[in-house]
Simulated assay, not measured.
Amino acid sequence: MDCPRSNSSTCSSGATVNLTCSELRLVGGASRCVGTVEVKHRGEWRRVNPSGRWDQEAVAGVCRDLDCGSAVYGEKRDGFPQSRMWFVRPDCVKKASVRECARGPSYYSSSSGLEVKCSDSVRLVSGSGLCSGSVQIWDGSWTGVCDGDLDQRGAEVLCRELDCGAPSLLQGALSPLGQTFHCEGHESALMDCPRSNSSTCSSGATVNLTCSAFRLVGGASRCAGTVEVKHEREWRRVDPLGRWDQEDTAVVCRDLDCGSAVYGEKRDGFPQSDVWRVRSDCVKESSVRECVSYSSSSSWGVEVKCSGPGQKGRQREDLRGPGDRPDQIHLSPGPDTGP
C-alpha cells in the first residue's frame, strides 16, 4: 500500500489475483534460479545444510518449488562463512517442499552449503527421467513447444543447457518448415536462439525430447563403446559397484535409443583415472546418471554394444564387429573392485 496506485476500485468481476510466495530462495547467483539454497524456517532465513546424497532428483525438487524449470546441477561445497543452518534431508525434498523438510537445532552452524542451478526458461515435463519429457518454455507462463518448432540443433542446445548430454531421441520435431527456434548449435540456452514465431502450442502436439546423461565412446558408432556418464558437470568412465549383467546393458541401450543389448563387459585395463562408481542394481530400475554413488580412481570400466537405433538384437555372432574378440560375445560381469 506504499506503492503509487492509479486505480482504487475494488474487484467487482470476481477474477482476483492468486499469488504464491516462496519461503525458499537461491542467493548470490546471476538470476533468481541460480545460487546458494536458503530456506525460511521458524521465521528465520538460513543456508541449507547439504547432508545426505543430493542427487539430480533432489535438486529438481528445489527448482520445482521455485518454478524455475529443470534442474541443471546441484553441488555441495565448503568455504561459506560459518553460520547457523537448517538441516534438509534430500530424500524428503523429493516428496515434499524444501520448507516442510527443514529441521534442526537453532544453534547448529557450519561452513558448508548447497549451490543449485535451474534452467530458468526451459523444462522437460512428464518424462521417464530428469533428462526426458515434453518441452516447455517460459514465455510469461509455461508453454509447450509444438511439433516442428525444434530441429536437431535446437535439441542439442536444449540438452546442453540442461547439462544432460546429447539428444538421443527427438520425437515429431524434425519438420524443416514452420520452425520457431533457429539455433546454430553454439548457443548456451534455447531462448538465446532466434525465434520466428512466438505463438503458443494450441494443437497440444508438443515436442518430446530425450537427452542422454551418458554416452558410449571409442566405438564404431554412438551405440558401441565405453560407458561414460556426466555427473557434477564432469564426464567420467563408469566403474560398476557389483555385477554388471545383461539387464544393465539393456537399460543403457534403451536409454540411448540404441535398440537391444548385444553384449556388455566389465573389464580392467583402462588408463588409471577418476571414475564414477555406479550401483549396477540401481541401473535396472532407474538411469545410469541417477545411480552414481561416489567418485574414485580406477582402471576398470564397462564396454557395451547395442544393436543400433530401431533394430532388435539378432544373434550375437552376426553383430560381431571386426575388432570384437570371440570371448567378448557374452556378458561377463568381471570381479568387483570394491569401494
Rank of each mutant, 00 (worst) to 15 (best):
C11H: 07
Q82D: 06
L130W: 01
V125G: 12
S13R: 01
S112M: 15
Y294S: 14
T10Q: 07
S8T: 01
D248T: 11
A58W: 05
V62T: 13
V157D: 00
R77M: 13
G133S: 06
E234Y: 00
R5H: 02
E184C: 05
T16K: 01
C159T: 03
T337V: 05
R42V: 07
K40Q: 08
T180D: 01
V135N: 11
S221D: 14
V122M: 15
S109M: 09
H231S: 15
P271F: 03
G127N: 03
A96T: 15
D268M: 09
L150N: 03
G35E: 10
T143E: 10
V37D: 08
D55P: 11
G154V: 08
N208W: 13
G61P: 01
D78Q: 02
L114Y: 08
R53K: 14
R320Y: 11
R314T: 04
R237N: 05
L170I: 10
G52D: 12
V251T: 07
H41C: 07
Y108K: 05
L150R: 05
C282D: 08
D151P: 09
C118H: 00
G74A: 10
L209G: 09
A205W: 04
S273W: 12
P335Y: 01
W54P: 01
E187G: 10
Q315F: 06
G52C: 14
L174P: 02
K94M: 10
E234K: 13
A189N: 03
A205E: 10
C183N: 11
V93C: 08
Q136W: 02
A102F: 07
V48Y: 08
D151Y: 09
C258R: 04
C131T: 04
T36A: 08
K266E: 09
P81R: 13
G165L: 11
L190Q: 05
G323Y: 03
A173F: 00
K76G: 15
C146E: 00
G129Y: 03
S109G: 00
D324W: 01
F181C: 07
C118Q: 14
G129K: 04
P326C: 15
T20H: 03
V39C: 07
G178Q: 08
N18W: 06
S6H: 01
Q315G: 10
L24A: 05
Q171M: 15
V59Y: 09
W45T: 13
L169A: 12
G52A: 13
R46G: 13
G28I: 04
G29S: 06
D67E: 09
C201T: 01
D78K: 02
S196M: 06
E247V: 12
T206C: 04
A96I: 07
Y263W: 11
V62Y: 04
L158D: 04
W235S: 10
L241M: 14
R64F: 12
R267F: 11
V98R: 06
L241S: 14
S203G: 00
E290A: 10
G264H: 05
S134V: 15
S9N: 06
V217R: 07
K312I: 07
V292F: 03
R277V: 08
S221E: 12
L169Y: 07
R32S: 11
E317G: 02
S111A: 14
S8A: 10
D255H: 03
A173S: 15
R89M: 08
Q311Y: 02
S221R: 12
G313N: 01
